[in-house]
Simulated assay, not measured.
Amino acid sequence: MGAWDIGHFDNDTAADFGGRVDAAAAEKKAEVLRDVLTAVAATAPQEYAHEGQEAVAAAALVAAQCPGGDPVTTPYGPKAPLPPLPADLRPLAVRALDRLTAKNAGPLDLWADAGAGREWLAGIATLRAVLAGAPGE
């Protein structure tokens, strides 16, 4: 993973994901997020969660539409505004983030190896708090 900062879109994988979200038709954008969040949330503890940076970026996009969520303003995220996202993405994003803070999670391992594990986890905790505090259905 090439990363230039600790932000949710500040790495090659997440930036590419932002482009993939932009490339999707408006009515398919939520499905792009759902697919990556589901893939990570469904990863068993003994399996390695590979799509982690994409799932974090997807969770940030979902959280941006929640009360108290921060807008995604980075130039590495999607350029076009997202349509309103379904509320059921919120608990799914929480499950994905929970998976990414457990064993065998790609991003946690990478950030910990880079000496930024605590800082990365703090950003994940902030996202999770916004998502968990928002109505999910």
Rank of each mutant, 00 (worst) to 15 (best):
G19V: 05
V62H: 00
R118L: 14
G115Y: 08
T43Q: 06
D109H: 11
A132R: 14
P67L: 06
L110A: 15
A122H: 06
A23Y: 00
R34Q: 05
P86S: 11
Q53K: 04
G2Q: 15
D109P: 01
A96W: 09
A102N: 13
R90M: 02
L37D: 05
A132H: 12
M1G: 11
L127Q: 11
T126F: 01
L92R: 04
A42L: 08
A122F: 06
E51R: 15
Y48L: 14
G115D: 10
V130Q: 10
A25K: 12
P83D: 09
A23P: 00
A30Q: 07
D109M: 14
W4N: 03
T43N: 08
K28P: 00
H50D: 08
E54A: 14
H8C: 01
A87T: 07
R128C: 13
A14S: 15
G68P: 13
T43L: 09
L100E: 09
A41Q: 13
A58N: 11
V32Y: 06
V72Q: 01
R99V: 08
V56W: 04
A80E: 12
A96S: 10
A14L: 13
K29Q: 14
H8G: 02
V40Q: 00
A134W: 10
D98F: 02
A80D: 12
D22M: 11
G68H: 04
Q65V: 08
D10P: 02
F9Y: 11
A93K: 00
P67T: 00
A59T: 07
P78H: 15
C66P: 04
D113N: 10
D5P: 07
L100Y: 05
L110P: 00
G18I: 08
A80Q: 13
F9D: 15
V36H: 10
A41L: 06
A25H: 14
V72T: 09
P81K: 07
E27M: 03
I6G: 04
F17H: 07
L61D: 03
V36K: 07
G106S: 09
R118F: 09
D22S: 09
A30R: 00
G19D: 08
W120R: 06
L110C: 07
G18Y: 03
V21F: 01
A116F: 07
P107L: 13
G136S: 09
A64G: 01
A114H: 08
L85Y: 09
R34S: 04
D5H: 12
K28N: 14
W4Q: 03
